[in-house]
């Protein structure tokens, strides 16, 4: 079907179906929905990238807001750890959103394509286990970046703490900036920053990453709203789809083989990244 002649109602229904699937996959694969949504919808749907990025931010925001209460109650997201990191990320993400809306579309498409392909490569190569911090650094001690959670897999309360706080703050500022430019939640980068760089346990890193996204994306979402870059016909079915899909994903998390989903995600990201890159280079419009 030619996108130019298709009736308008096809697109919100297609977005709902796509984001419902993304919601399932995102939870099971431990990534935010935005990193798949923006390149896929930007490349295969007829909307301009300015609107797709606005939708991507709001989609990641809604999905993480919905998950945050569960994560906080399970003590997998820690508010005191998240407060300073989210502040650094929020300020950077505001400027990222302003820069993203000011850049020429082809430049953003090329940068998005290259970034998504690089993330797919990192996902493929990264060891998800990481190395845990055994002692806090001075700033982490002052900020009390530590806590405990119950791990039902080993029937134990796990004490944790973080280190390399300044490097962590810098990393979250950088992640926030790119998230603002491309309209991504950037969970793929938050988790390694918390786990590999700052030494938080993987479960705390995944849980706190969701809470960080919900905070960092809020100011960037207002930039898109204030500039008129939020089209409800694109955003609303996407938000509803990902919220419903994420609930199914949370139930499937225990049974679905994560390695299979991880491979599907990597292939989808590579395809979407190549498409965005070629579109930006005017090779495949």
């Amino acid at each position: 079907m030619d996108p130019a002649t298709a009736p308008w109602w096809i697109w919100p229904l297609a977005l709902f179906a796509l984001t419902y699937l993304l919601g399932i996959v995102a939870v099971v694969a431990g990534i935010g929905g935005g990193v798949l949504f923006v390149p896929l919808v930007g490349s295969f749907f007829p909307f301009h990238l300015d609107f797709v990025r606005g939708a991507g931010l709001l989609l990641a925001l809604a999905g993480t807001l919905a998950a945050a209460p569960l994560l906080l109650r399970a003590r997998l997201a820690n508010l005191r750890l998240v407060l300073p990191l989210a502040l650094a990320g929020s300020i950077a993400s505001l400027f990222g959103a302003v820069v993203g809306l000011a850049l020429p579309t082809d430049v953003v498409q090329i940068a998005l394509g290259a970034t998504v392909m690089a993330v797919a490569f990192l996902l493929w190569r990264t060891d998800p286990a990481g190395q845990l911090a055994t002692e806090s650094d001075a700033l982490g001690e002052i900020l009390r970046l530590k806590g405990e959670y119950h791990d039902p897999a080993v029937h134990m309360d796990i004490d944790w703490r973080t280190h390399r706080t300044i490097a962590g703050l810098a990393a979250f500022a950088g992640i926030g900036f790119f998230g603002g430019v491309f309209g991504l939640g950037a969970g793929f980068a938050n988790v390694p920053a918390l786990n590999v760089l700052m030494g938080a346990p993987l479960k705390v890193a995944v849980g706190s990453s969701g809470l960080v996204i919900s905070i960092i994306n809020s100011p960037a979402a207002w930039v898109y709203i204030n500039r008129g870059a939020v089209l409800p016909l694109i955003v609303v079915p996407s938000i509803l789809g990902i919220m419903l899909g994420a609930r199914v994903g949370a139930r499937l998390l225990r049974t679905m083989p994560a390695s299979v989903v991880r491979r599907v995600v990597i292939v989808a990201m590579l395809l979407a990244g190549i498409r965005a890159l070629l579109r930006g280079l005017d090779v495949w419009i």
Binding site: L65, S214, I215, S218, A221, I225, V230, P232, V235, V236
Partner: peptide, 17 residues
């Protein structure tokens, strides 16, 4: 209708505050 939906979307952006 379109701005009624934008108002609903804005609720999500307001929650963190």
């Amino acid at each position: 209708a379109d701005y009624l939906n934008l108002a609903a979307v804005a609720l999500f952006a307001l929650m963190t505050l």
